[in-house]
Design a protein around this nucleic acid. Structure first.
Length: 104
DNA sequence: AACTTGACGTGAC
DNA sequence: AGTCACGCCAAGT
């Protein structure tokens, strides 16, 4: 059995290709132990360095703000744009870049 | 050890 | 179409 859903979570996030994004809730649903998107975020708060956390967005394509610190969202947007991810205002164009983690 | 808040999602009003 | 409310449950205080 999976010791930690975190391991699976990190593994999935690490498999997300450049130019693609995944939603928190979808990630939580494909883990052995299905968890809410909230839990995903909390686990990500302890994510190791080198993990492309910026490829994880809300299902609406919205960049989630962490601890009322918009700096993270801004950095995330810069990183995504750098990977050729299309933006629609403040939202990621999920209709083009949102992928299902279970397809990885 | 208990309470509060939260990197979310979906439905209801 | 925007806003409100509830469910999820772990981590920080």
């Amino acid at each position: 059995m999976a010791s930690n859903g975190k391991e699976e979570l990190f593994a999935l996030v690490a498999k997300v290709p450049v130019g693609a994004v995944v939603s928190y809730g979808d990630l939580g649903q494909v883990l052995s132990n299905r968890v809410s998107g909230l839990v995903i975020g909390h686990w990500m708060g302890s994510c190791p360095e080198g993990l492309p956390w910026w490829r994880v967005v809300a299902k609406d394509g919205r960049l989630v703000v962490f601890k009322r610190d918009p700096s993270f969202a801004l950095a995330q947007r810069q990183l995504l744009e750098n990977e050729k991810v299309a933006f629609n205002g403040d939202l990621v164009d999920v209709s083009r870049h949102l992928v299902q983690p279970d397809l990885l």
